[in-house]
Amino acid sequence: MWGFLYAGAFVAAFAASAVFKMKYNPLGKKYTVAWSDSVGKIYKDLVYGKEEANKFDLYVPADTGKESYGLVIYLHAGGFTTGDKSGDADILKWLCSKGYVAAGVNYTLRDEAHPDTSVYSQSMEIKNSVPYIVQEAEKLGYKLDRMAVSGGSAGGCLALLYAYRDAVESPLPVRMVFEAVGPSSFYAADWTSYGLDQSAEAAATLFGIMAGKEISADMIGTPGYDEAVKDISAFMWVTEHSVPTVCAYGKYDRVCPFESVKHLIRALQENHVAHEYIEFPHSGHGLQNDNKLYKLYMDKVEEYLDRYMDS
């Protein structure tokens, strides 16, 4: 009888512990908003372009009394092939609760129906969305005069591209960018987790698809290669005028290879760009094993928003 009791107790404890760990939110309720009309309103699936995915959700604060508002765009993750703005509702609500107009923007995903989609074309859709977001916000009575851009993973990559490459043409001055685990460089030698350091052909194929250009294996390692991937390599666009940045990466990341991060950090340091780089020493792409550092990352995001996005 005691044998059964031991076995049952072990299984129950194992299961309960596993469920608790899976459901535990390291940030607690700090970034969770009890949403209601007193916080803001959500306008869904507003159109910004002719592609089916060219839609954005707008989260506008209940307080309509300000002269102007800051816009924060958050771009969803999904490996450039999956994901939706609806998955970021929590962070968008939180941003809106801080008094910003927040926007989650969809972009055309690369899939069987859209085989020509590239990271470059996605970044251009994001770039084209901003004037429509500004217009829609103004129609609703929110005059926007500054913006921040943010995202995670694929969204982080696209956020960095907008912040560093496209800010000069932005209808709103870009004040800062924050992102986590977004790839910012595409050198085969760094993408070891994909085996691309071992195969120039595979590297040329993948990065050519991502850049939307023909890249051959013998271009790898030449200046011609840098030119070919520049449009999707955010770190190449960092200058002394680039916007303040908060970014986070995991040392064991195999999806956005950790080795690829060094180019961005070096570019930010060499150009003396204000930035906070938070390295998660035990985590991978999910930043899942360093909860204290995740709290630090969000603290820094808030600090930068307060410092650079206040009117």
Binding site: S193, R254, V255, P281, H282, G284
Partner: peptide, 29 residues
Amino acid sequence: VILAGIVLGRLAVRAVLNLLVGGSMFGGN
């Protein structure tokens, strides 16, 4: 036995997540 279940339950979740997205088994959390 209960303590072992709790520890192994957490480690199992960590192991699975690490397999999916990368990470170390110990350290940090």
